[in-house]
Design a protein around this nucleic acid. Structure first.
Lengths: 212, 212
DNA sequence: CCGAAACCGTACCATACCGTACGGTCGAGA
DNA sequence: TCTCGACCGTACGGTATGGTACGGTTTCGG
């Protein structure tokens, strides 16, 4: 009743939602490309096709649009990385899979741009950094620590392992030097082989420190 | 002759150089606070005291000022970190000193702001990232790798250690989770004890992987 | 088929930006 | 004391910004 009939492919709410997503997609692209201060509402509305009045009918201000773009972008890769450790099992292969996937996700151009943007704005807008941390690194950290705790209990890892510390070190090693060099834009995108190599090295060091 | 007499405390060139440094200091502060797009030449000139015309007599454009600020900022901590590994010696204490100093330098508010700024602009201005990398991380990486190579030859570390890989992993572990959380602005400045703890954990993991 | 709501195009406001220009002032060197 | 260059204060030009207003048009539910 309040949402209209399903027969029609273009009910009001659906239409509005579609437009909203379209605006978010365009705005996301421009924010990631130019940064918060560098992006322009006029350009966004021009790129999205409609008028600026319409844009302001969907989002009350630039900062609110920015917030919505971030919120939308952050909920994308929640499960993708954590999925690699959901099953449990022996650390060697699980951690290798995690490390590879983790770095591969971090290195996608869209995510590099997002990470740059968050770093840039976190100083002035603490809630940006907080939102990013909560919906990304905090999850990875927690899930990995849980897995490690289980692996310790099963005797795969040393009994005196601090799961949280081990998880954080594993994440740092997985992220690797490549990630920094990509953020600094001083090296082209690495091959899959390099990513695998990094994961291999990370796991080797991790297991040397925490393996049973 | 070409630089004027030393008797007078205020020769022309000296005066110019002083003003230049003053401008750089103020501009640095504002760029680090507001980012490149967010900073304003008018505010900089107002903060520095003089007129905008004078500002443009020293730096031809905003981008050139930005470049000069970066160049000036990057040459500060060259030796401070590398000094901790200059002497050589057994890895345990040397690496601990390196790790502590490294993280402590990274966590200084001015450097956090600089790192944020570089991350933010490296995507659009590759030369910014390159300059930063060359004058900072590349040096640390190289010096640490050299030290590790020496330690391997002296039998302190495993013979099959890849010095460059080991150096990079050591840097990643030293930088630690704290550094990221500070960049994301989700945690207050850590105590010295936390920094020492991080260094301790980094060295422990490193030696487990590469110790002889 | 009607009426209302959403949307478009465009013009507009106030502000801020970068960069320039210009007349006045001050201090140093001759 | 005179000259000259650097500096100051200020104002300005041209452009772009975030955000608003408004009349005309399309779209959709009833």
């Amino acid at each position: 009743m309040e949402t209209g009939k399903l027969q029609h492919p273009d009910s009001g709410d659906e239409r509005r939602e579609r437009k909203r997503r379209q605006i978010l997609a365009v705005a996301r692209e421009i924010f990631l490309r130019d940064g918060y201060a560098g992006a322009s509402m006029s350009e966004i509305s021009a790129c999205v096709g409609g008028s600026k009045g319409t844009l302001y009918a969907y989002f009350a201000s630039k900062s609110e649009l920015f917030r919505a773009v971030l919120e939308d972008s952050l909920t994308r890769h929640e499960a993708e990385v954590s999925g690699t450790i959901a099953g449990g099992g022996a650390p060697g292969e699980v951690l290798r899979a995690f490390s590879e996937r983790f770095l591969e996700v971090l290195l996608r151009p869209e995510n590099l741009a997002l990470i740059r943007l968050v770093y840039a704005e976190a100083g002035r807008f603490p809630e940006v950094g907080q939102a990013f941390y909560d919906s990304g690194p905090a999850n990875a950290e927690q899930h990995l620590a849980d897995y490690i705790r289980g692996a310790v209990e099963q005797g795969y890892l040393r009994a005196d392992t601090d799961p949280l510390l081990a998880a954080r070190q594993m994440i740092l090693l997985s992220q690797g030097w490549i990630h920094n060099r990509r953020l600094w834009n001083v090296t082209p995108a690495p091959s899959e082989a390099e990513i695998r190599e990094n994961a291999h090295a990370a796991v080797r060091t991790f297991l040397a420190a925490f393996g049973a």
